[in-house]
Structure formats: structure tokens, C-alpha cells
């Protein structure tokens, strides 16, 4: 094969086309992303050092107060409750992963009509969280909600969303519903790709049940588990819609999480404290950053492995 030699008549543009072309293709996407995502992150850091109502420009109406917002956070009881609830969300939301795996194993069969069952099991994930929240708050209704009707047969009753000790768990349970469906579909796809020869070989060696799952199947499901982990962590820290719809932070602020508390401080009837809100957002961002760094590091490692 002969390599085409550059004819001397090439223009500057043609000679540099391998760098100009990708730049032109990247430009609109990167510009949008820079304006709406990258720069707001930096601005939020900056705003968090101000006391500002959001009216007028930050430089004129805002008052620079340094780290004062963060110092205030340290002694803010509501912040502590929110942070603690975030931890509950993070830990309990992870139940979606074994839950999804369990349903996936249950449905990974080839009987007639199983495809329809799989889609029906999945479809809570497609419904908006707002509707999931409404559906569950009616499900939990005292006296008339289905849950309490069933509990009533056993002579007990519980007002989940009205009880400060239980409300957060009730909301997390609602959130687990679509999230488990998501993990289920990830695992179903993963199970499809498991190498049948390895399973047969393991069977010949006498492996079955839980041992088979642990030593043969799960290692092959690692990519699915990783994605399930990523989306579940992100989902847990993003929780906002369900709280807003189901309890609006109550009762007595017991169901707030950082994302909700930030919104309340910055935009709702509790006042327009943009600086303080931004400080809460910064903390949430830093928590997320720990996970993001880990995800990126893993992806970067895979990327390098793929290149070699």
C-alpha cells in the first residue's frame, strides 16, 4: 500500500484538519456544557462566600462574608439532620442492588410470556418520581391507604409519613421501588452475557446454588454491578422529588436531605439565602466528588487497559 503524500498545494486548514475538525465538532457541545454546567459549579463556590438574597447583582447587592456561611452550617441543627438523612439514603438505597439481583435471578427463565413479565417488573422505573411519590403517599395514607388496610387485618396501624422517626424510611422505600427495577434490568442484561460454558464446567465440578452464584456468576456480573453502584449512589444523593412530593421536608423537618434543604434555604418561602444555600450545595458537591473521583478513576483504568 502506498501512503498518499501531501501535495504541496495544501492549505493551512487542510494540513491541520485532524485537529481543526474535532475542535469544530466539539465546539457547540463544549460551549453549552461550559456555560450551563462547568461555570455554574465554580460560581456556586464563589456565591457561597456571600450573603445574598438573589435580587440585584451579586457584586452590588451581595455582601462578602468569607467562610461565615460554612461556620453557620456547623452549628445548624437542620443541616445536621439533613446530612444524617443523606447517610441513611446512601446506605439503604444500596439495597436496590441485591434486590435487583434477586428479582433478576428470579425472572431469568425462558418460560412463555416471561418477556412481558420482565418489562412489567421494570416499568416503575419509567414513571416520574413525582408520580411514584404520589402513589406511595396514597399507599401509606392512615386509615384508608392500602398498606394500613392490610395492616388493619392484623390489628395494627401506622402513619408512616406523619411520624418523624419513620417518614424518611417510608420515602426511601418508595425510592427503592424504581431503583430496584433499574438494577434488575442491569443484572438481567448481565446474566444474558454470562458464559454458559463456565457454568457447565462449574456444574460438573459440583458447584450450585449460592456457591455457584458467588464464585462463578457474580465475578462475571462485575460490569453490571459497577453501573448499578454508580447509578444508585447518584440516585441516592440526588433524592429531591420524592421528598418534595411526599412530605415537603416534614414532619418537623425530619425528612430533609441536603439537596432539599438547600432548595428550601435558597428558593422557598423560608427565604432567599442564596449564599447559604450555595454553601450547602458545595458540601453536597464535595460528598459527591468523593464518589465521582472513584468512578472516574475506575473508568480511566478501564480506558487505559482498552488501549494497550
Amino acid at each position: 500500500m502506498t501512503l498518499p503524500t501531501d501535495p504541496p498545494t495544501q492549505t493551512w486548514l487542510q494540513r491541520h484538519r485532524m485537529i481543526i475538525t474535532p475542535l469544530m465538532f466539539l465546539l457547540p457541545g463544549v460551549a453549552f456544557f461550559a456555560v450551563y454546567v462547568i461555570s455554574p459549579i465554580l460560581q456556586s463556590f464563589y456565591i457561597s462566600t456571600f450573603e445574598w438574597t438573589g435580587l440585584g447583582s451579586l457584586s452590588e447587592q451581595g455582601e462578602f462574608i468569607g467562610m461565615q456561611n460554612y461556620r453557620e452550617l456547623m452549628s445548624d441543627r437542620n443541616f445536621e439532620v439533613s446530612l444524617w438523612n443523606n447517610v441513611k439514603w446512601l446506605v439503604l438505597y444500596l439495597l436496590a442492588i441485591p434486590g435487583g439481583l434477586f428479582i433478576a435471578l428470579f425472572l431469568n427463565q425462558t418460560v412463555a410470556g416471561i418477556r412481558v413479565y420482565k418489562s412489567l417488573f421494570f416499568f416503575p422505573f419509567v414513571i416520574s418520581q413525582v408520580v411514584v411519590g404520589l402513589v406511595f403517599s396514597w399507599f401509606y395514607l392512615p386509615n384508608v391507604g392500602l398498606l394500613n388496610v392490610v395492616l388493619g387485618w392484623f390489628g395494627s396501624e401506622v402513619n408512616i409519613l406523619g411520624n418523624p422517626d419513620l417518614a424518611t424510611y417510608g420515602i426511601i422505600a418508595a425510592g427503592l421501588w424504581p431503583q430496584t427495577a433499574y438494577c434488575m434490568i442491569l443484572y438481567l442484561t448481565g446474566l444474558n452475557a454470562v458464559d454458559p460454558e463456565q457454568i457447565e464446567a462449574a456444574r460438573l465440578d459440583g458447584a450450585k446454588g449460592v456457591r455457584m452464584l458467588w464464585h462463578v456468576i457474580l465475578p462475571q456480573l462485575r460490569p453490571a454491578t459497577f453501573i448499578a453502584f454508580v447509578v444508585t449512589i447518584i440516585g441516592a444523593l440526588r433524592s429531591f422529588d420524592l421528598i418534595s412530593v411526599m412530605t415537603n421536608g416534614g414532619p418537623f423537618g425530619s425528612t430533609r436531605v441536603l439537596s432539599f434543604y438547600m432548595f428550601e434555604k435558597a428558593l422557598s418561602e423560608y427565604g432567599f439565602r442564596m449564599g447559604y444555600g450555595s454553601a450547602i450545595a458545595v458540601i453536597l458537591f464535595l460528598i459527591m466528588l468523593i464518589f465521582i473521583s472513584y468512578f472516574l478513576w475506575t473508568m480511566w483504568r478501564d480506558e487505559r487497559a482498552a488501549r494497550l
Binding site: G277, A281, M288
Partner: peptide, 25 residues
Amino acid sequence: LLIFFMFIAGNFVPFQILMVPVRDL
């Protein structure tokens, strides 16, 4: 890779860190 990872990272960010500046803009 740097630009690629910027897109991925941005995608994971909590909405609240964007809220005030995006609303302002």
C-alpha cells in the same frame, strides 16, 4: 480524554450546585 472525563463528571454532579447560577443566568 480530559474533555471526555469532563463530560462524564459533569453528568454526575448534584443539581443543587448548579441551581443558583443557572437560575440567575
